Simulated scan of single mutants.
Amino acid sequence: MTTITTAFADAVHDSQACFRRLLTAMAEPGTRVQLDRAHAFGAMNAGAVQVLLTLADHHTRLWLSPALQADTATLDNLRFHVGAPLVSDPAQADFAVLAYQDTGGCEAVLEALPAGTEEYPDQGATLVLETDSLDQGVAAVLSGPGIPGQRSVCLGSLPPALVCWLSERDPPSPLGLDLILVCERELIAIPRSTQVEV
């Protein structure tokens, strides 16, 4: 029995719609956007799926956390619809997806993901992190480019190591990781240039 499911119904228009919403999320950190053009791929929620359908391709090195690596439906659909090469080491990844049930092991992943170099700051990775809520849980105040003053957000039930990393990260600009927190079909972005006060 096949595990392949439908991705975007209209590949061009749906990916363009998602891309515009992701641009809004990145340009206005902490702004909630909804991606409603595709469903989950097995264990990977619909929001994370649509981020990859929109931003990843066969040149994008992709790392998946253990729960996603172990899910046949997730792997089959990503190979079929996205074609991104999977890497076993997060240090080699352009994109990483961390399932909510794997966030307890986030510390090693955060340390390993590439933050770019002075010559190639664009080589910093993007981490797509599944969370259980954007309405409650860890409360944070964001500031920086794209935010008039400050913006308050909720990040869900995140482990202490991830909260600590968010509040203490201070890599030399423009180095660092871009973070996209996804809850089902909704997401917020916290780019590397955003300051986080928890």
Rank of each mutant, 00 (worst) to 15 (best):
106 C>A: 15
90 P>R: 00
97 V>E: 00
105 G>C: 00
99 A>D: 13
77 N>M: 05
83 G>N: 11
85 P>D: 09
97 V>T: 10
116 G>M: 05
116 G>P: 01
115 A>C: 14
112 A>V: 03
71 D>F: 07
103 T>R: 15
84 A>V: 02
96 A>G: 06
72 T>L: 11
109 V>M: 08
114 P>K: 01
100 Y>V: 12
79 R>C: 03
90 P>F: 01
89 D>E: 14
93 A>V: 12
94 D>G: 02
78 L>W: 05
78 L>V: 13
111 E>K: 14
116 G>F: 09
108 A>I: 02
97 V>I: 14
80 F>V: 05
105 G>D: 12
83 G>Y: 15
110 L>H: 08
91 A>W: 07
111 E>C: 11
85 P>A: 11
100 Y>S: 07
103 T>M: 13
75 L>A: 13
88 S>A: 15
102 D>S: 11
78 L>N: 03
73 A>Y: 09
106 C>R: 00
89 D>M: 08
89 D>R: 11
74 T>V: 12
76 D>N: 09
103 T>D: 09
76 D>F: 08
101 Q>P: 04
76 D>H: 13
86 L>C: 05
75 L>C: 14
85 P>Y: 06
84 A>Y: 01
106 C>V: 15
116 G>L: 12
109 V>P: 01
110 L>A: 12
101 Q>N: 13
77 N>G: 04
84 A>N: 00
90 P>I: 13
117 T>I: 07
109 V>E: 00
81 H>D: 07
102 D>Q: 13
95 F>A: 05
95 F>E: 02
79 R>L: 14
104 G>K: 06
84 A>C: 01
71 D>W: 04
112 A>Q: 07
87 V>R: 05
83 G>R: 08
115 A>N: 04
110 L>Q: 08
82 V>N: 06
101 Q>G: 04
76 D>K: 09
90 P>H: 02
94 D>F: 01
94 D>H: 09
80 F>I: 06
89 D>A: 03
103 T>G: 00
107 E>W: 07
80 F>T: 13
